[in-house]
Nucleic acid binder design. Structure first.
Lengths: 113, 113
DNA sequence: TTGACATATACCGTTATAGGCATATAATGA
DNA sequence: TCATTATATGCCTATAACGGTATATGTCAA
């Protein structure tokens, strides 16, 4: 067998560099296939295929506009990945660190009083 | 060509279910190979191979203890994945957004005084 | 209707795995 | 030293999936 889980889950969908690059472009707003191909210097069929994978996991949706198809990022499917990471992010997350520091300060002040 | 990027980057290392499961166990503390195999119901060679992949990207380290090898989680290599996700997480964690705004307000008030 | 443009799909060859199984390596204890 | 335990590695097979190229589908404009 190849890999147990296939591109049809978010983790694998996002594991591919070009697909991440596509998402990175789409984060700025919707784009037609051709423009993605230009920007990322990929052949159009390759882009279409990657978009298919991303679409299968719900990470992108598209609407037709004339002969073009505008693809749009959908963040929600990233949630499982995000939540999985939460277990590990403690030392990585500056926001939480900031909160942590704030709470520590509060405690210290209370102890002094 | 197969995939552009190989297991030797964090995104791919983490794309495999069993490897994520291994990390999920190790987050509680270091474990010997055999125990991982038991808990995850995997054959020992398979576990060793997954550990190799995880080790190659720095996600685990190990120390020998007698004939056993205790594997330990290293979170730092997750940073690229974490940072990549930051671009997309806004809508995923509204609570943190709210908290962030609150803390910013607090700081501003303190600066004013 | 025809031709140009935009995108999706199909087919092909190549390659990187993942799992299964056997075996090598290494440490311990009798 | 030898048997046992713990782990790593090597070999094999099957398969997923990437890129490349050709082609199908679909839309618009003249």
């Amino acid at each position: 067998m190849a890999r147990a889980s296939v591109t049809s889950d978010i983790f694998n969908a996002v594991a591919e560099v070009h697909r991440r690059e596509i998402l990175d472009v789409l984060v700025a707003g919707e784009r037609p296939v051709g423009e993605l191909a230009d920007v990322l210097r990929l052949a159009q069929p390759q882009v279409s295929k990657h978009l298919r994978v991303l679409s299968d996991v719900g990470l992108v949706t598209c609407r037709a506009e004339g002969r073009r198809r505008l693809y749009r990022l959908e963040q929600e499917p990233l949630r499982p990945l995000y939540e999985w990471m939460q277990k590990y992010e403690r030392s990585l997350n500056k926001r939480l660190d900031r909160l942590d520091g704030y709470l520590t300060d509060l405690q210290r002040k209370e102890e002094i009083q």
